[in-house]
Deep mutational scan, measured.
Amino acid sequence: LVRYRTISKIPQITLNFVDLKGDPFLASPTSDREIIAPKIKERTHNVTEKVTQVLSLGADVLPEYKLQAPRIHRWTILHYSPFKAVWDWLILLLVIYTAVFTPYSAAFLLKETEEGPPATECGYACQPLAVVDLIVDIMFIVDILINFRTTYVNANEEVVSHPGRIAVHYFKGWFLIDMVAAIPFDLLIFGSGSEELIGLLKTARLLRLVRVARKLDRYSEYGAAVLFLLMCTFALIAHWLACIWYAIGNMEQPHMDSRIGWLHNLGDQIGKPYNSSGLGGPSIKDKYVTALYFTFSSLTSVGFGNVSPNTNSEKIFSICVMLIGSLMYASIFGNVSAIIQRLYSGTARYHTQMLRVREFIRFHQIPNPLRQRLEEYFQHAWSYTNGIDMNAVLKGFPECLQADICLHLNRSLLQHCKPFRGATKGCLRALAMKFKTTHAPPGDTLVHAGDLLTALYFISRGSIEILRGDVVVAILGKNDIFGEPLNLYARPGKSNGDVRALTYCDLHKIHR
């Protein structure tokens, strides 16, 4: 019993810090008490220290592992850092350059016999395009090294910054494609005289377009951006097909006994025919423009016929181009109408809503002055909100995010209106959640004399007048207030005048 009563005193000691020596009952000389009392004092002292730490809000209350900052290894790049964003855009520009100039170089340097010394005699450094290609190869190699040090988000939505895990993730992902696209074939085969082989191998750079397509997928929600990307894709495919079309004609031209190829026909049409040795002929500019003209006309199913396939190889390629053109029509131009419709969806919704308003007016036989006010209010409210119901949009977000959005939407009023000066951010967040926005066209009466005042109004834009009878008592403008002081009276009061809008007004109100 003594032991039980001794232990039962522990909660009292913990909360009230009572010393055991003052209790005459606990001072009985028993061996059990002498053993338990020192333990009680020690526990009391420890609990006292913990309570003191909690009340003082000291940093040592938290466990040590929670006080440590997340460790980022040296030379690790955050995937959302500004440097990584700028670097990704730079790589994107280099990939676009590669997609345009690599097929052009591979096709127009394929057994090209233009006048001038061969590239091997001039030297590697004197070729501007080769120098640019070398810079692109170096940048792609540097990009691989950067990807080995860039964080990523795993399946659990955690940012991984450990170098080993980053390397394994990159090896399992895009490393092989990036490595093949970054191989400097110019340096590996330079001086061997195989410019045709170098041009063909350099087309491996186009593998990076797969990554670019995935990154550009984030802009699919913007109709104008999608339309622009589709047109660029169409032009890029036409450019690639033009390079292939020229390569076919250029390879067949020296081996044909009869002059029936499209390059021969082009030379005869523009007065620059090929001679018996295969030299001469149109310039590279004429060849490229004509090839691009043929691919565009074939892809769009126009086909004027002034550039036509004559050999079997050219006919087979033309059939493939027609098939590609039909697929592009289905996948690209078939979506253009939907994209344009999405661009004008706001206008369509406006006309639909206006039609419903006019049908309501016609069905209920609203008189002319009231009908005009109804239409003007709808037009003004639509121009202010673009038909978007803010309350319906915010309803799907958590309250903390709703408060931040409301604070942002009402920031101008909260910053410049005098009653809100000096208020804490928590108070402003709470008030912003209570605001209701209303609009009024010129001549609209917001409050009639004798109406119950259940709200306090803040003028965000425009001006109003307060009338008693036919006498203008006051004219209020931006950041002015009218209405009933909230919670100042037990019952809502009545208006002693009319409140009429002089201009288009936007008002925020808080109800009782």
Rank of each mutant, 00 (worst) to 15 (best):
G334N: 01
K418H: 09
C400L: 07
Q402S: 02
Q353E: 10
G334A: 08
S412M: 13
I270G: 01
L266I: 01
S383D: 15
E252Q: 07
H239N: 01
A106S: 04
H351I: 03
I144S: 01
F175H: 01
L227S: 01
P103F: 01
R259G: 15
C417L: 14
H448W: 03
I135T: 04
I138P: 01
A69G: 11
E64M: 04
W382F: 04
R421H: 08
A449P: 02
H416L: 03
M139G: 04
S276W: 01
T76I: 13
C232V: 05
G267Y: 01
K436R: 12
T203N: 11
D217N: 09
P273H: 01
A213D: 04
A119D: 01
Y274R: 03
A204R: 14
V136Q: 01
H364T: 06
F190Y: 13
S283Y: 01
D404K: 01
D178Y: 01
V307L: 01
G443H: 06
V302F: 03
F175R: 01
E158S: 09
R165E: 13
W87Q: 01
N335G: 03
G173T: 13
F190R: 14
A238R: 01
E195F: 15
A225R: 05
A381H: 15
G116Y: 07
P273G: 01
F185W: 05
S308A: 13
Y170W: 01
L92S: 04
Y350L: 03
G334M: 01
G267C: 04
S297A: 03
I198S: 05
A204G: 10
E252V: 01
E196K: 14
M433I: 09
F108D: 01
H169A: 09
F304P: 04
A213R: 10
S276T: 11
F294S: 01
R205Y: 04
A247N: 01
S283P: 01
E121T: 14
Q365S: 09
D217I: 06
R371Q: 11
A225K: 01
V289A: 01
F234I: 01
R429E: 01
G267K: 01
V142G: 05
L370V: 01
A291I: 01
A423D: 01
F171N: 01
A235V: 13
G271R: 01
H439W: 01
P103V: 01
F171S: 04
F83M: 06
V302I: 02
L370E: 01
G116Q: 15
H169R: 05
F140E: 01
M328E: 03
E64Y: 12
A238H: 01
I166W: 01
N275A: 01
Q353V: 03
F108R: 01
L207A: 14
G199N: 09
L227C: 04
D444V: 07
F234Y: 05
G280N: 01
I144L: 06
I237P: 01
R429C: 06
E157W: 10
L374W: 03
C406G: 07
N154Q: 08
L110V: 14
N368M: 08
I366H: 01
E112Q: 05
T424I: 01
A204T: 05
Q68F: 13
K436I: 13
D178N: 01
D186H: 14
D286L: 01
A119F: 05
D217P: 04
A348Y: 07
A99L: 01
A381T: 13
L299H: 01
R373Q: 12
L200V: 04
P282A: 01
F296V: 13
E359P: 03
H448K: 03
S258C: 03
F304E: 01
R356F: 15
H239S: 01
A99Y: 01
Q402V: 04
Q253P: 03
L229N: 03
V86T: 03
K202Q: 01
T150G: 01
T352Y: 13
P103I: 01
F228L: 04
S192C: 11
G271V: 01
S277R: 09
A430C: 04
G173Q: 08
E314V: 01
L92Y: 04
L188I: 09
L446H: 01
V210K: 13
L394E: 01
M179K: 01
H264S: 10
P128Y: 05
I388G: 03
L279K: 15
K425H: 09
M322Y: 01
Y246D: 01
W89N: 01
T150Y: 01
P419W: 04
R71Y: 14
Q253K: 10
I340H: 01
P163M: 05
L292A: 01
G396Y: 05
L394C: 03
C427F: 04
N410K: 03
S194A: 10
N306P: 01
C427H: 03
L374K: 01
G426Q: 04
I166G: 01
W87M: 01
M256F: 09
S345N: 10
M322I: 03
E112T: 09
R211H: 01
E359Q: 10
L236R: 01
P118H: 09
Q402N: 01
H351G: 03
A213Q: 06
S308M: 01
L374Y: 01
D444F: 07
T203E: 01
Q353T: 10
F304R: 01
P369H: 03
S337D: 01
H351Y: 13
L299M: 08
L78F: 13
L206S: 05
R211V: 01
G199V: 09
H380Q: 05
Y170S: 01
S220Q: 13
P184C: 01
F101Y: 14
H162L: 11
F83E: 09
S337Y: 10
I91P: 01
L93C: 01
S81Y: 01
W245G: 01
Q402G: 02
P163Q: 04
A224L: 14
G443R: 03
V160W: 01
P441E: 06
G191L: 03
G426R: 03
V226S: 15
S276A: 14
I91T: 06
I144T: 05
A440F: 10
P441M: 09
P128V: 15
S192G: 10
V159S: 01
F190G: 14
Y377K: 01
H73D: 05
T233Y: 04
I177D: 01
I260F: 12
L236G: 01
P367S: 04
R358T: 05
G443V: 02
A430Q: 11
W245V: 01
H79Q: 02
E376D: 07
M231P: 01
R349Q: 04
S276F: 03
Y222P: 12
I339M: 04
G305S: 12
I189N: 13
T438R: 08
E114Y: 12
P419C: 12
A99W: 01
T352S: 10
Y219C: 13
A242M: 01
F171A: 09
A392G: 08
F140W: 03
K272H: 01
A155I: 14
Y222V: 05
A106P: 01
H79L: 01
A155D: 10
T311K: 01
N391I: 07
H439F: 12
L110W: 15
R362M: 01
L200H: 01
W240M: 03
V447F: 04
G325W: 01
Q341L: 09
N312C: 01
L263T: 01
L446A: 02
L394N: 03
R349C: 08
P117C: 04
W240N: 03
L176R: 01
H380Y: 15
K418R: 07
C122R: 01
T438N: 09
P82F: 05
A381E: 10
N386A: 07
F333G: 03
W89Q: 01
R421I: 06
C427N: 01
V210T: 11
W75E: 01
A119P: 07
E314F: 01
A125N: 04
R74H: 07
S220H: 09
V180H: 01
D404F: 01
Y377C: 11
A242W: 01
G249W: 03
I72M: 14
Q372E: 13
L343C: 09
V168L: 14
L134I: 08
Y170K: 01
P282N: 01
Q341A: 14
L401N: 01
Y97S: 01
G267R: 01
F190D: 14
G267V: 03
A235P: 01
A181Y: 01
E359W: 01
M256R: 12
F101L: 15
T113C: 01
G426H: 02
E121L: 09
F175W: 04
S337V: 05
C232L: 08
E195V: 14
R349M: 05
